[in-house]
Amino acid sequence: MVLPAKTARFFQETGDVAKFTGRFFSQWFRPRYEVTEFFRQCFVIGYKSLPLIGLTGFIMGLVLTMQLRPSLVEYGVESQLPAMVGIAIVREIGPVIMALIFAGKIGSSIGAELGSMKVTEQIDAMEVSGTNPFKYLVVTRVFAATMMLPVLVLLGDAISLYGSYLGVNIRGITSFRLYWAQIFDNLAFSDVIPAFIKTFFFGFAVGIIGSYKGFHSSKGTEGVGRSANSAVVVSSILIFIIDLIAVQITDLLGFN
């Protein structure tokens, strides 16, 4: 049986990504360790993404609260607004939305940077300079993305809940203390831990897909653009797939 060209290409690429991921794990522990470059990438990927994650998180919390209020008022459970927003943001909306924003910013930047390094022979030059380009460019970026997204999501969730506090107080008066008490009374570790763990996988997916697309960029500026674009598309789809799997697993383990 002959597969249609597009299907064959899909399976081919899936296999290539799997091989690329295997190469990441095989090189991760082996010396020489690129510690300086790893911390530089943590700064670029983590610290420099914080303003964007913070701003979008704040708006997300504020808008979500304003949109939920009328429905809750209708059923007479307006007082449950902080608890409902808190659970929604911490369990699902915060990690997924922030991971998608992260994929847009970091996935495209890794794809474009490595892609342009590839087409301008900088990766070859690095190899000639006695450097393992996979370790120096890919391992550091993927590891930094994996470690930084959970931190960004934690901070983003906190900023989002501050935005929600503002939303709660636009049409009512709730003290700061009462607001946080309502949130924490309704949040359990079974809400926080699975949501936190899945963000490591989101970060890894963004890093590995961005690096794969950049590292395999075809010649020319068009190829670089395509790498950046498909890095965002594929990692965004992967985020939803990982989220779906994570929800099934947490459900099976009785966390829901």
Binding site: S116, M117, T120, E121, Q122, D124, A125, M126, V128, S129, G130, N132
Partner: peptide
Amino acid sequence: EQDELDKIRAKVGFLFQSNALYD
């Protein structure tokens, strides 16, 4: 082996067509 190859590469310069300077 990689280490030995790197020692040889230190003795061989390569000027790339696109210069390949790190941006």
